[in-house]
Amino acid sequence: MTFSYYPGCTLKTKAKELDAYARRSAEALGITLAELPDWQCCGGVYNNTKDEIATKLSSVRALISAKEQGNKLVTLCSACHNVIKRTKNEIETNDDMAFRVSNYMQCDARKDSDTEVVHFFELLRDTVGFDELKKKVVNPLTGRKIAAYYGCLLLRPGKVLQFDNPENPKIMEDFIRALGATPVIYPMRNECCGGYIAIESSEAARKNSAAIYESAEGFGADCMITACPLCRYNLIKAESTVPVVYFTELLAEALGVK
């Protein structure tokens, strides 16, 4: 099965392993990830204002490009996923935005960017299936206690992202179970790492991140997984006592393609 793939900037630089392990795992699972030829940076955060159009256009281009290829669009980085999916939703629900984007891009935005946006986790859950994934695991991560760190961008706004229950998600825990490890449930898993304020208020960001890994450690985690390079960066900068890795690394390990 072929999906269009939007890697995003950071996966080409500081988070190469998030990308590389995903590609290897996808191959092992019989999924073809066809990287969009002409993708541009999503901007990192979604601009929520209704009168802002320019920052949304790169997402629109990605949506149109995937639609032209006739594929669903797979994302890996939480931030890219959030931005692209929310842009699509805004065009769907805001007439003014749809009109302005159509006018600027000289297209019918609602029709031409009507592409299904799928996060890699959703692909594992809905296309591969966690039961199937479990069967394909060659190195089960038995005995490892792994804390899923969702952060904000995959979950919220819940109504738009439709990823999982934003207050009590389970998709990453189900993923961890499929790999043979034990998920660690802790209350801070859907709290913010501090995000972009790390650029000028690094202390504040560290305080947020510290609360998260302390909570995970307190409940006995020996590893944390994330899909977001910025979350990982903030946790590491806050001197996380629990190792933080990308979820694709664990996946590749379990599938024997690391």
């Binding site: 900037c9 950071t10 500081k14 988070a15 940076c41 920052t55 980085c77 650029i199 910025l230 960066y233």
Partner: peptide, 26 residues
């Protein structure tokens, strides 16, 4: 609020592009 000329002083080797882009957007 964030000016390009101030960026070099804020960046370290491991700063991910995502952080810079996000902060600029905001």
């Amino acid at each position: 609020h964030l000016k390009a000329e101030n960026i070099p002083g804020m960046v370290e080797d491991d700063t991910p592009g995502q952080l810079l882009v996000s902060a600029f957007r905001k």
